[in-house]
Nucleic acid binder design. Structure first.
Lengths: 133, 133
DNA sequence: CGGAATCCGATTTGATACTG
DNA sequence: CAGTATCAAATCGGATTCCG
């Protein structure tokens, strides 16, 4: 794509995840974190309510989903729409920025899913060589 | 891109990260994990020795780097080349599969880095609204 | 140099219970 | 429904020590 950048490093970029103190590192961790990844991936299919999301992201606890959504909302990747009805109804959806992030994330996810056979094969031959030790 | 897939879900794919028990979830975590991300990103620039990597991935400890490299090697994303010299010399480099993963990861990383100003702005307005609580 | 092994505190996570 | 509060358990992660 952009051939002028990433020659050897992000020399000219103001933010660099490889630097310990860079704030981009924190955001990247929200995005690539265990639940951040799956939450963004799930929200790419449309807006969902809290418990709908919980069911889609198999295995996430209430606490972790809540925490993850807060972090993503704070970073401007997810929009929270609460209706003050009773019972309450809250919808979560990606922001335009969040959608762009989710697309890149899904490219990675789908690639990994599509190559799992290679990965599993690599694991087998690894075990074989180094064995169960 | 491929409009026939991802309509509502990965219904036809054998592996699905959203399912708790799917092995692809583990691999995705190795890839997107805190140090996995940075290690793959660093290795995208070429092969490196252990301590060279340590310096590039700012903040990683010996233990975590070693552990991360093992996981990635086991999944067939990183190749380890040890020369039985004295002192020993060990090079790590991406496999072809690893390179493809790293490319997608870097697309994400660079995108996030490039939008950090938006993220930081979102944080500011978030704090403003919900305040320090 | 390139690690593995151990110790141990800090952080993260997940049930469970409780609230509006 | 949509969370928050709490507590115990699991994991993480770093410093240190030791080895080939």
């Amino acid at each position: 794509m952009n051939s002028t950048q990433q020659l050897t490093e992000d020399q000219n970029l103001p933010y660099n995840v490889f630097a310990k103190a860079c704030p981009s590192r924190g955001t990247l961790e929200h995005v690539t974190g265990r639940w951040g990844t799956l939450t963004l991936g799930a929200l790419h299919e449309g807006p969902f309510r809290f418990n709908e999301l919980r069911r889609r992201v198999d295995g996430v606890s209430e606490k972790m989903l809540s925490q993850t959504l807060h972090a993503l909302e704070r970073d401007g990747l997810v929009h929270r729409e609460a209706q003050p009805t009773n019972p309450p109804r809250v919808d979560y959806e990606l922001t335009p920025l969040g959608r762009e992030v989710a697309e890149r994330l899904l490219a990675l996810i789908h690639f990994v899913e599509g190559r799992m056979d290679d990965v599993l094969e690599a694991r087998r031959s690894y075990e074989e060589t180094r064995g169960t030790r």
